[in-house]
């Protein structure tokens, strides 16, 4: 088992890509801690992990609250050990054209999608440094690379986490800690279901493979990056978008 008994922390694991990542890491032998913002959500993750035969549980964690991060990390470390794989997946959208965007829409998205990556990575890094091994994997988006009208806040955070990964990769590389980014394209989740049919059709026509991606297709790449097979990849952004956007 490539990830046997490694404690993996996946934020935003209630549904969509996060849920698929939690499952896939669990199948690789990891102890998976999935976070949700509510007690009911955490309970649902615990139940699902148990049904899937995965070790670990769901915990309540508000990624925008430093105290919540600290107490959740303490609880996880005491119960399971230090997380050596961190998947920064939790994310939200609050789309609006910039001319109409409120401060609240801007800062909520920055706080949940970008500042949370800072908070979580910093909290987990100490344990990884001591272990002389670690994996931080940020979930970005194709939108961070190619842009999308109405998503200036979201795109800024998604480009931001990739830059963050490149800088941190240089800081902690000497400790065998890798920091990478996975940039999904148009994936079949609740987040993309919120788009209108017109938006959906326009995007579909731009995808070389001609279909939406499945959350499992993102989870496969994340589990590869978490494994020792990816030990020489760091600071990299891997695009997983069916040919919707091809970086040079």
């Amino acid at each position: 088992m490539p990830l046997a008994d490694k404690v993996c922390l996946v934020t935003g694991a209630s549904r969509g890509i996060g849920a698929a990542i939690a499952k896939r890491l669990g199948e690789q032998g990891a102890v998976v801690i999935g976070t949700a913002t509510s007690e009911t959500g955490a309970q649902a993750i615990s139940t699902r992990l148990t049904e899937e035969g995965v070790k670990g549980k769901g915990v309540v964690l508000n990624v925008t609250d430093a105290d919540s991060v600290a107490s959740a990390l303490k609880q996880i470390t005491e119960e399971f050990g230090v997380p050596l794989v961190l998947v920064n997946n939790a994310g939200i959208t609050k789309d609006n054209l910039l001319m109409r965007m409120s401060d609240e829409e801007w800062f909520d998205v920055i706080n949940t999608n970008l500042s949370a990556v800072y908070r979580l990575s910093k909290s987990c890094l100490r344990g990884m440094m001591k272990a002389r091994w670690g994996r931080i994997i940020n979930i970005s988006s194709v939108v961070g690379a190619m842009g999308n009208a109405g998503q200036s806040n979201y795109a800024a955070t998604k480009a931001g986490v990739a830059g963050f990964a490149r800088a941190l990769a240089k800081e902690v590389g000497s400790r065998s800690i890798t920091v990478n980014t996975v940039a999904p394209g148009f994936i079949d989740t609740d987040m993309t279901k919120a788009l209108s049919d017109e938006q959906r059709n326009t995007m579909l026509s731009a995808i070389a493979l001609g279909r939406l991606g499945q959350p499992e297709e993102i989870a496969n790449v994340v589990s590869f990056l978490a494994s020792d097979n990816a030990s020489y990849i760091t600071g990299e952004t891997i695009h997983v978008n069916g040919g919707m956007y091809m970086s040079q």
Binding site: E171, V172, S174
Partner: peptide, 11 residues
Amino acid sequence: ADSLDTVELVM
């Protein structure tokens, strides 16, 4: 020691 070592040492 490198810069990261000194940070770890202080911690």
